[in-house]
Design a protein around this nucleic acid. Structure first.
Length: 954
RNA sequence: GCGCGAUUAGCUCAGCGGUAGAGCGCCUGCCUUACAAGCAGGAUGUCGCUGGUUCGAAACCGGCAUCGCGCACCA
């Protein structure tokens, strides 16, 4: 080329500026704001809304990378894609966080009052929500920001109220007094899922409970072995403080030691209450003493025993975890202080038999990080079983489809034997429960017995209350006073509506929102396995209640693993081992981080480990992805310098027949890379579509780097440079061939960029614009996926080309063994008995020359095999000779040949062994046997050639 | 206790019936006008152990071991 091509791009890719520029361009032009009425089969995803409690962590980055890869692919495939973003109000988490801050300022939330507190919470949301949304943008998330939602925004509040009212109408919500998981730290009930069992080194205290006087001999039971008269029982407990609330002691009905005592009573120490001895199957005679103290108001198992035996419930604690008046002298003590005090008191009375160390599980509150107290309290519940049953039936039909499939079992098991869901929280930050108490019925206070109405708003509540209680009030001359339930709903109640509330559900009377009509149910939910119960199951359950005809709220559930740190630890805020995605983005670019994360997920559903050096904040994995990005950048840079200012469009697609006609046919390398391109296109589309994202990433990496860059670009370099001294016909021919190469290069590269776009959105957008010269507001992101050219597929050609590559590798290897300098040219001689291979090598002579620094390339038949002396190697049925005797290290050569020989001999013995087995020939498929024979023949040729050479060398 | 997953090259992981692959790291040689964030070449594995199925097993089935996770938990 004579014209001075000015280098259009720097030598290395700098992601920072590029990424910001395209993010802005996509957003400003509304590239990802779909129209529900637009053509194209709808495809929709609602993102798992991050909590507004902080900032982006690696889990978000991972989830984002996966979702965005999927939706960008579907967009390229022509689907009408909605990817809807949003954030979650995270009731307990935010409230806990704010309370701590207020405390640090020396105040309390009660000083502040509900309204002022909520004002602060909204201010916090504005700040924190803004932070995390900004960080999601920084990843290049192709979501519709115009439709961004927040679980506590007015539209979603409307959905929550509607959902609550409807569930109530369907009889699926009830209010009642039950033993719930109480978190004393946050002063609220929590659901079963928010309780985490932790192994703790505790104690097992053995306490003596005396029998009340009368009939100690146990003579009533004739079958019992007559032992010394019994005057007490010993119970074992890990929580002595709860004894203050004991209302029985239970033994197993079949336990001969105690059968005769059932029905007798004990005197509860420290309290003096008479409590019965009851028989219950739940008691394991083999554990401890076989006697269990029963505290129905403070333990779920005891609660069940209490129900079976009609025992009273005695609550001995306040909601802040201190002992109440029922605890007598221990009132006012914190539950843990009370534990020590009770033990001391028992010991003082000689009733402490022994204290054993005991390792056991203690329920902890997820948020409060303190042991949960099972406490009797009045709460709202969703009846889970009918909703779960609906989901189980759907799952029988394969809905939703879990990827990987095994997670469906986890989902199903949880839906089986499900317990009611406690949805009320004694918090301020959240959706206020749309229930109003008729407090004028209970003297102005809310009690478990206060009548209530559920309504969409205060007015409707009043109307209802008037209807039910109005006449009675009027008759009594009382004013009807209503008070809304002060409590809020579990955050997951609103998150559970997310797939349809965000799309406008419930909409206006008789007019479903267009978004809902187009994009519901959503196509796929992508989330971590850790919230299958919390979120996935809640969404399917609630969707079943409100939109049953639509089926589950998503067709597929793609479950991914967690990102673990370099030591395979779960990343967590409390452990302080999180790796900051923003740091990695700054260092390597968002594309590199995304690519690295996606590339790690080949084994779908598995946790991924991100290597990381905390000293330098570097990650070899992300760095290698950055290097790949740079490789792609440079490949494009190369193209830009060699396309003579033309674009894929101006050059036109390389159509084999047309080029043939024009006398500038596709060369071997062209046909090879076009065949590979078509094949990779098929494979990649298939993988993306089937959630094989890691495989798609790896496949494209290998194609781009190991085939396009390492071989194709190298092979066309000469054709792209037309020497200035060429004249006349030769020049015409060279220019024509140059054009063919340019066409193929332009096609391969531009299509490769499209295929890589879901993985490296910014870089590919940038390079594609450079390559195609597309107007600024025409985006690769919205371009159609390239069509597969079936006629380009040629498996035979690909196999031949692989042989050519091998031949070149052998030459290079021989040169390396000989220690030839890259600048030293050496003659190359190929010898083969296979005419087709010989023809291929003849045809590729110029390529071989260029890629091996050959002084000359000759191809001969077997008869000419041993005429030269020099370096020799074999591959397949090909003998490669570098006749440069003088320059050669003979020992190195012998070593090389010996190695070839050993390898061939090993293969021969293996293959012979197999073929010698008559069963193999009989039972193995013919093509396998055939391949085996062919390989044996090849290996034998190799061995023979190597032996021959070694003999010649002496 | 029940269930799930993992165990393959120094590290991180693919492969899931036809006798082992990638990236990183390592060794050798190269600044060859796309790329040293690169190029060329090289070394490295009784595929956790153990039975079985099969002509053939890293892959399928059984058992065991180790690690991890989930669920349920005996006070």
């Amino acid at each position: 080329m004579t014209e001075a091509a000015s280098p259009p791009l720097p030598k290395t890719y700098d992601p920072a500026g590029t990424e910001a520029r395209w993010q802005a361009a996509w957003e400003q032009t509304g590239a990802f704001h779909p129209d529900p009425a637009a053509p194209g089969q709808p495809f929709s995803v609602v993102i798992p809304p991050p909590n507004v409690t902080g900032s982006l962590h690696m889990g978000h980055a991972f989830n984002t990378a996966l979702i965005d890869t999927i939706v960008r692919f579907q967009r390229l495939r022509g689907r009408n894609v909605l990817c809807l973003p949003g954030t979650d109000h995270a009731s307990i988490a935010v409230q806990t966080l704010l309370e701590k801050r207020i405390q640090a300022e020396g105040g309390s939330k009660d000083d502040l009052g509900r309204d002022a507190f909520l004002e602060r919470a909204w201010a916090w949301k504005a700040e924190s929500g803004g932070t995390i949304v900004g960080q999601l943008r920084r990843l290049g998330y192709s979501v519709d920001w115009r439709r961004e939602r927040f679980t506590l925004d007015p539209g979603l509040n409307r959905a929550v109220v509607e959902a609550f009212v409807r569930l109530h109408e369907q009889g699926l919500i009830h209010r009642g007094e039950y033993l719930v998981n109480w978190c004393p730290a946050s002063g609220s009930a929590v659901s079963d899922l928010e309780v985490e069992m932790k192994e703790v080194e505790g104690h097992l205290w053995h306490l003596r409970y005396p029998l009340t006087p009368g009939g100690e001999t146990g003579a009533a039971d004739a079958g019992a072995p007559l032992e010394a008269p019994v005057d007490h029982l010993v119970v074992a407990t890990t929580r002595p403080e709860t004894m203050l609330g004991d209302t029985a002691v239970a033994v197993n009905p079949t336990d001969p030691r105690y059968a005769h005592l059932v029905g007798r009573t004990l005197e509860l120490p420290l309290v003096g209450r008479r409590i019965p001895i009851v028989a219950d199957d739940h008691v394991d005679p083999a554990f401890g003493t076989g006697c269990v103290k029963v505290t129905p108001a403070h333990d779920p198992n005891d609660f069940a025993i209490g129900q079976r035996h009609g025992l009273p419930l005695i609550t001995v604690m306040e909601k802040d975890g201190t002992m109440n008046a029922a605890a007598g002298p221990f009132a006012g003590l914190d539950r843990f202080a009370a534990r020590e005090a009770v033990v001391a008191a028992m010991e003082g009375q000689g009733l402490l038999v022994k204290t054993e160390p005991h390792r056991h599980s203690v329920p902890f509150s997820d948020r409060g990080k303190v042991p949960v107290e099972p406490l009797l309290s009045t709460q709202w519940f969703v009846r889970a079983e009918p909703l779960a049953a609906h989901c189980r039936q759907a799952l029988e039909r394969g809905e939703p489809r879990f990827v990987p499939e095994r997670w469906s079992k986890v989902y199903r098991d949880w839906l089986t034997d499900i317990r009611d869901w406690c949805i009320s929280r004694q918090l301020w930050w959240g959706h206020r429960i749309p229930a109003w108490f008729v407090v004028s019925e209970t003297g102005g206070v809310i009690t478990p017995a206060t009548p209530w109405v559920v309504a969409r708003d205060a007015e409707e509540a009043r109307r209802q209350a008037e209807a039910t209680h109005g006449p009675a009030h009027a008759a009594a001359g009382r004013e009807l006073v209503l008070e809304q339930d002060p409590d809020v709903l579990d955050t997951w109640f609103s998150s559970g509506l997310w797939p349809f509330s965000t799309l406008g559900w419930p909409g206006e009377e008789g007019a479903p929102p267009a978004e809902l009509a187009t994009w519901y149910p959503t196509s796929v939910l992508v989330t971590g396995f850790d919230i299958i119960f919390f979120w996935v199951a809640r969404m399917t359950m609630l969707a079943g209640a409100f939109l049953p005809e639509a089926g589950p709220p998503f067709h597929d559930v793609y479950i991914h693993g967690l990102v673990r740190d370099e030591l395979n630890r779960k990343m967590s805020k409390s452990a302080g081992n999180g790796i900051d995605p923003l740091l990695l983005i700054e260092r390597y670019g968002a594309d590199a981080l995304r690519f690295a994360l996606v590339r790690e997920v080949a084994g779908a559903g598995q946790d991924i480990r991100l290597d990381y050096d905390r000293e330098s904040d570097t990650s070899a994995t992300v760095e290698s992805a950055r290097n790949f990005a740079n490789k792609l950048f440079n490949a494009t840079r190369f193209a830009l310098m060699n396309l003579g200012g033309e674009t894929p469009a101006s050059l036109g697609a390389p159509v084999a027949e047309v080029l043939e006609r024009e006398g500038r046919p596709l060369r071997l390398a062209d046909r090879w890379i076009l065949s590979r391109l078509a094949r990779v296109n098929c494979e990649t589309a298939e993988r993306y579509g089937a959630y094989g994202l890691g495989e798609a990433a790896k496949g494209l990496w290998e194609f781009a780097w190991n085939e396009v860059c390492d071989w194709y670009l190298e092979l066309i370099k000469r054709r792209l440079q037309v020497p200035a001294e060429l004249e006349g016909v030769a020049r015409e021919a060279a220019l024509a061939d140059q054009r063919t190469a340019r066409q193929v290069l332009a096609k391969v590269l531009s299509e490769l960029l499209v295929m890589l776009h879901p993985l490296l959105p910014h870089l590919t957008e940038e390079l594609w614009h450079g390559l195609t010269g597309a107007p600024e507001k025409t985006f690769l992101a919205l371009t159609p996926w390239p069509e597969v050219d079936d006629s380009a597929l040629d498996a035979t050609l690909e196999a031949s080309f692989a042989e050519l590559i091998e031949a070149i590798r052998v030459v290079r290897n021989l040169r390396a063994v000989a220690g030839l300098k890259p600048s030293q040219a050496a003659p190359v001689r190929f010898i083969t008995g296979r005419p087709a291979l010989a023809a291929l090598l003849e045809q590729a002579t110029p390529d071989i020359t260029a890629l091996t620094r050959a002084a000359s390339v000759t191809v001969g038949s077997m008869e000419q095999a041993t005429t030269e002396r020099g370096l020799a190697g074999v591959c397949g049925e090909l003998q490669v000779v570098l006749p440069i005797e003088g320059l050669v290290d003979l020992d190195a050569l012998r070593g090389r040949l010996a190695k070839d020989l050993a390898k061939a001999e090993k293969e021969i013995s293996g293959l012979r062994g197999r073929l010698a087995n008559p069963n193999f020939a009989d039972k193995a498929p013919p093509e396998v046997v055939g391949a085996c024979r062919a390989n044996l023949g090849e290996a034998e040729t190799q061995a023979q050639l190597a032996r021959q050479r070694l003999v010649e060398l002496g």
